Amino acid sequence: MRKKLIEAIKAAFLSEGYGFFQGFADKIQGSELTLPALWLTPIEVAGMSGRNDGKVTYKIVLYLFVQNEQYDEQQKEEKWEELERIARKGIATLPMISDVISTDKVTIKPDEFAFTSFGELSQTVTFLADVYFCNE
Results as ranks from 00 to 15, higher is better:
K3T: 13
K4G: 13
K4R: 12
L5D: 03
K10S: 15
A11G: 11
F13N: 01
F13M: 04
S15R: 12
S15D: 12
S15C: 06
E16Q: 13
G17C: 11
G23C: 04
A25W: 00
S31F: 12
E32A: 14
L33D: 14
L33M: 15
L35D: 06
P36I: 14
A37N: 10
L40G: 04
L40I: 07
T41E: 15
P42A: 11
E44T: 15
A46C: 06
G47A: 02
M48A: 04
D53W: 13
V56G: 01
V56W: 13
V56D: 03
V56A: 07
Y58F: 14
Y58M: 02
I60M: 07
Q67H: 03
N68F: 05
E69K: 14
D72T: 10
E73R: 10
K76W: 00
E77S: 10
E78C: 06
K79H: 03
E82H: 07
E84C: 03
E84N: 10
R85C: 02
A87K: 02
R88D: 02
R88M: 05
G90L: 07
I91V: 13
I91H: 00
A92E: 08
P95W: 15
P95Q: 14
M96K: 09
S98G: 08
T103P: 06
V106H: 01
T107S: 14
K109Y: 00
P110C: 07
A114R: 01
A114L: 02
S117L: 05
E120H: 10
S122N: 05
V131R: 06
V131S: 05
Y132G: 00
